[in-house]
Design a protein around this nucleic acid. Structure first.
Lengths: 327, 327
DNA sequence: TTGTAAGCGTTATCAA
DNA sequence: TTGATAACGCTTACAA
């Protein structure tokens, strides 16, 4: 069932049928005739052929570091409806935290105009990333990290952790920090700097080795908390770079008879659903992930339509959610 | 940069270049000449044109009910590598638990051969679903539900909850159950029946109204637990259809001074990451979600290659994970 | 082993 | 307002 058959059945040329679907530059009678045939046959134009001819895919590729992450899923749930409403399909490419695959996907998407635009939910930027980004011939928005020269939407991690730490230090004297790799500028470097600067401002001296390095997992948070409490048993607050890490810390403290928040205060970042479930409920930073996804999608829409050619940078606001794990 | 230019630069016909990429029916010299040109130009064949010509998209559509779900993400992480290794891209379509969108996506995918195959991570089957499935002219595997006449991979929910309940009843006399909608056969009906049959076998009488109906959320678990404990304060075990529900129940019990497992035992299903974090750690059913995803992907691969035309049904094994929330 | 030529199903240009 | 006609970039008989 192709456009030729429809044209023949409706007694018009295939160009007219094409117009029926696109410009709409068709007389009433022909329009009616064509409509009748389409209703009867259930004809739907071939997307592939259209893509080949027009060079537009109506697909946006979203590259995500992992699928099972509260923050990522919130961003995606912000992105999807905005793009769908604008007539785009969303192709999710999951890299499972593999930087090489991330680069691969960028190449794949751009090389042959697989997609009309890309949203990169970023973590780290290797030289390979930068190179791939430079060669990208497709509209792009970077989400969750800031990268100069590109349109970005990201969270104010520095300020958030700085403020949160400041609040904790009102009642704590010996804080420790569990962070993630500094290559991840947002979650690693910025949050850590927020912690350090807050300590400095409060006149709290932070030992050189005060940072433990964790993965983004609960288990990892557990072992880091263990390392901290064994090295410095008088620690009275643990600021964690993510909620997951904080959950691990909470578990360690609980199992070792340390009370939260009386003996040790604990904080996370992310305000995941779990944060309200653990005992005690976790004080954390609420990031507007979903909204940032919407924002990124809108920006991309602007770039794709060509209206909006100049790169911009959006830093999202945050909220501190005080719960029972701090005093 | 198209195949014609490459052909010209290499001094061969475009058919030979095409063969270079496909059959490989090319002499050594020409092959070398073509390779040289390709290396120099970085030429990559247009996927769109190839699709148009061959009718193969090399894309598999995976329809998922929600992105932020532990079980779904595990299934997807099983599916993706299997399909990628076989040369397929995975297009994730998120329906956000909207049955109508689920049907829409099935139509979209099948109508114009957008994809070579579909994996449907199913929850419920409405008449609209059944109709759309019937019209689907694309290889399909149903994941996480059983549906006769179609290839399926699903979890043994009945047996799992039956066995788990049996264990709980060794030390409990007044069990209650928090379930989800029975329209969801796997998570709703099967788990509930497992609970009821186990009670029957142990000679425990279950009041008619012993089931509370919850959403798949923590909050919902909280209110159902509340309803149960108010209606039947002597309840000494709450079997929950999902981990999330169990977390809510745990929170309610904790806040109301009831000890778990001494006063009330609690169980979930799913063995999500959270299950090891909450206090006390949750006894639950471990389903092999990731493996079931792999299995479904392999089945689809078989159907798509045409080898494997007869529908099959795979029921996965499970494990009961006993932790601190039961005795 | 290679080249020629005929499509795949559209849209865009142009003249009518 | 319409219809021929020429692309879009590739694969695949078929013939050489």
């Amino acid at each position: 069932m192709d456009i030729n058959q429809i044209a023949q059945m409706a007694g018009v040329s295939r160009a007219t049928v094409s117009r029926y679907f696109n410009d709409g530059y068709v007389s009433q009678e022909k329009r009616a005739a064509i409509k009748r045939v389409i209703d009867k046959t259930g004809y739907v134009p071939s997307r592939q052929a259209k893509v080949l001819r027009t060079g537009k895919t109506d697909i946006v590729g979203v590259i995500i570091p992992k699928i099972n992450s509260a923050s990522v899923s919130r961003m995606v749930s912000g992105i999807t409806p905005v793009l769908n409403d604008a007539g785009y399909q969303v192709l999710l490419a999951n890299t499972d935290n593999d930087a090489a695959r991330e680069v691969e996907f960028m190449r794949l998407f751009s090389e042959r105009r697989q997609v009309d635009g890309v949203i990169l939910v970023a973590t780290i930027f290797t030289p390979a990333h930068l190179a791939a980004l430079k060669e990208l011939n497709t509209p792009l928005v970077v989400l969750d990290q800031s990268l100069s020269g590109y349109s970005c939407v990201y969270q104010d991690d520095y300020e958030a952790v700085r403020e949160l730490t400041g609040q904790v230090l009102a009642t704590a004297k010996a804080p420790a920090y569990i962070g993630v790799l500094e290559e991840d500028v947002s979650a690693g470097e910025m949050r850590h700097r927020g912690f350090l600067d807050a300590c400095r401002e409060c006149g709290v001296e932070v030992p050189e080795d005060a940072q433990e390095l964790a993965e983004f997992t609960v288990d990892s948070g557990y072992s880091c908390a263990e390392a901290i409490m064994q090295a410095r048993p008088h620690t009275d607050a643990i600021v964690c770079a993510t909620d997951s890490i904080a959950f691990g810390a909470l578990t360690y403290l609980h199992e070792h008879g340390l009370r939260v928040p009386e003996d040790v205060q604990v904080t996370g970042v992310g305000d995941s659903e779990l944060a309200q479930v653990v005992t005690p409920r976790l004080t954390t930073v609420h990031h507007h992930y979903k909204t940032s996804g919407q924002e990124a999608a809108k920006m991309l829409l602007g770039t794709m339509s060509g209206d909006d050619t100049v790169a911009r940078t959006v830093k999202m606001a945050y909220e501190i959610v005080r719960r029972a794990s701090t005093r």
